[in-house]
Write a protein that binds this DNA or RNA. Structure first.
Lengths: 351, 351
DNA sequence: TTTCGCGCTGCAATCGATTGCTGAAGGTCA
DNA sequence: TGACCTTCAGCAATCGATTGCAGCGCGAAA
């Protein structure tokens, strides 16, 4: 199958010549060499304005566009950025998780702004090759990795020889790659202090601390607890998948009847918890106050609306893409840490 | 910049030879020709098992993977599927719309299952070239278009000569391309009949009927109304962007004080309407009943939970991808129409 | 009129993998 | 021992665009 299905056999009605399949065809039609056509279309090198415009007009009339594959092969540039989600923790986790989708949306917009395309890969890292496999095959000019998961070592080892790489997630002490993420510890502290300031003393942290971001938030939770006498905090390592999470949380709530405050490490988990609470006729925020993390669109839509620690994902996406393109251009770039912000709504404070 | 940043200069500690940059290098190291290496790695053609395994082992040891660009150029296959969202109606519409993201998530999963990659493009079709530009440059083996928007003509004209193309959206009478979508008219009818059966008589349809899917739902709305004496229905062409939608809806609600039932053409719009109603102290479902369309995850999470017309997006994604791969394989394929399903929750019926 | 210079264009190599065809090596059979 | 077949590997062309270098032609200066 030398020509893939489709090809370019179609032609506009009334086109003068057969639709050119490649730059050579067009060159023949125009009566010049392929080199000239290439220069005309790319606008590079020495070429007379007359010739350039003539060839461009012809190309547009015959509806010809040069092959990106061939150009990429020759130039080594692809015009494509890879976005990759390693789902290390939850094999069944879905790419359609709202947090991920929101961030992806912003990233897609920013990448599109620069005229690049976005190659999306979801990988379940069951072997340490997952990243180099993506990097090596040369289909992208750079990669954005969303969430280290538990794969920081692998990322480090690839980052050693592959520069154009940015990671969304926690800033880890031993990382040699650039990352963009919130100050998770501070965020955790803010959330917890908020609960404490409202009088909560029997707190719970919902989230799996084997994920680096979550661990940092948990540290912030503990920081805040240490400052208040009589306050206690339990940790429930909730799964990320909604069904599992509901089960985990329901079991916990049935036992924890003294509970008066919940800090959930994501809005998704918080909302699940909210539902579990309401199902059990425990009033929010009167009996139990609950605060999430991320401040996704969802948070505003629940009843009561969810308090949360806002991560500015739009700014984060901007930073990720900006850093990546700088790296591609060869600049030295620093990691970025975003300031989280407390957003208070009805799930912690009644109207 | 002949070698893009990064390259493959890195080597594993203790690797015997320098890391091969291409198949030729590896061939030299292995003492065979490039052709043999190619056959060994691809597993094609005549090659002895001994040689094949030896070369594979060597490749894996030296961490070599052949260039996808070069392979694509030669074979005409890319291992990539394009997913493209034409945002014809709302220039400012965001790719991170929950409906789109949900569908994209499922599609991404299905495509990944087949070992393909997903090239995501968001385009604002300001000229009729937008699609052929994507198709021509030969970076994908096929394309999934999410939503015709108002671009059915353009899609038709490309479909005439480019076969591997599937569209999510309305089935239109004059389309020559394959589409996957719900029976929107039936869905609209189900939703409206539901409202009518609960006693609603002053109905409103929220949605912009210049979008084909929406128009079909509106037809279903009218079908149902026709059957009931004394029932009236207004149409409010709400924008898709949340801010605009809120404004549109708020203005309408302030005037329409007799309103007792709303059919919104998406859950997003329904939720916006729900909020606008609650802001105005109009009880849902007692004063006004409201039903959405899509049955996204969101719908379950509002209070009261949103009744909706379920589109099975998971099945839809499956069908889209299945059809696309069949087309790529050269099969003749038919369009698919999914059966929508009424999902009743608290926004139309109190517990 | 000759020479030099400059602006364009073409030639041909190149990016890296694939694949049809050729032919060498080794085995089989008469 | 010789003819013939099978198996496997290499040669070289190919995909389509890019780009360093060579060279042509024309105008200007001497």
């Amino acid at each position: 199958m030398p020509k893939s299905a489709g090809g370019k056999s179609g032609a506009k009605t009334g086109a003068r010549a057969a639709r050119p399949n490649n730059i050579q065809d067009l060159a023949r039609i125009a009566g010049v060499s392929a080199a000239t056509v290439s220069r005309a279309l790319a606008g590079t090198g020495n070429i007379s304005a007359t010739t350039r415009e003539r060839i461009r007009a012809l190309a547009s009339e015959l509806d010809f566009r040069p092959s990106n594959m061939a150009r990429s092969l020759r130039t080594g540039r692809t015009g494509t950025v890879g976005v990759i989600v390693p789902l290390g923790h939850e094999k069944s986790q879905h790419i359609s998780d709202p947090f991920f989708m929101t961030l992806l949306g912003y990233i897609a917009d920013r990448i599109a702004d620069r005229g690049y395309d976005l190659l999306l890969s979801k990988v379940v890292p069951h072997d340490p090759e997952w990243l180099s496999r993506q990097v090596d095959t040369g289909r992208v000019d750079g990669m954005i990795i969303i969430g280290q998961s538990n794969q920081s070592d692998v990322i480090n080892s690839v980052a050693r020889f592959y520069n154009p790489l940015v990671v969304w997630g926690a800033a880890l002490p031993d990382q040699i790659y650039c990352s963009v993420g919130s100050d998770n510890r501070l965020g955790g502290k803010l959330a917890t202090e908020h609960l404490l300031s409202l009088g909560c003393r029997k707190l719970a942290f919902f989230g799996d601390p084997s994920v680096p971001e979550v661990e940092q938030r948990l540290n912030g939770f503990r920081d805040a607890l240490r400052g208040v006498e009589g306050a206690v905090g339990a940790t429930l390592p909730v799964h990320f998948t909604p069904e599992q999470a509901l089960e985990d949380i329901a079991g916990f709530l049935d036992l924890a009847d003294k509970l008066d405050g919940i800090f959930a490490t994501s809005d998704t988990i918080a909302i699940t918890a909210l539902q579990a609470l309401l199902d059990r006729r425990r009033a929010v925020p009167q009996d139990v106050k609950i605060i999430g993390f991320d401040d996704l669109d969802l948070a505003r839509r629940t009843v009561p609306a969810l308090s949360s620690v806002r991560q500015d994902l739009e700014a984060g996406a901007e930073a990720l893409v900006d850093i990546l393109f700088r790296k591609i251009a060869g600049e030295e770039v620093e990691s970025v840490m975003l300031q989280p912000q407390l957003v208070v709504r009805g799930s912690t404070v009644s109207d």
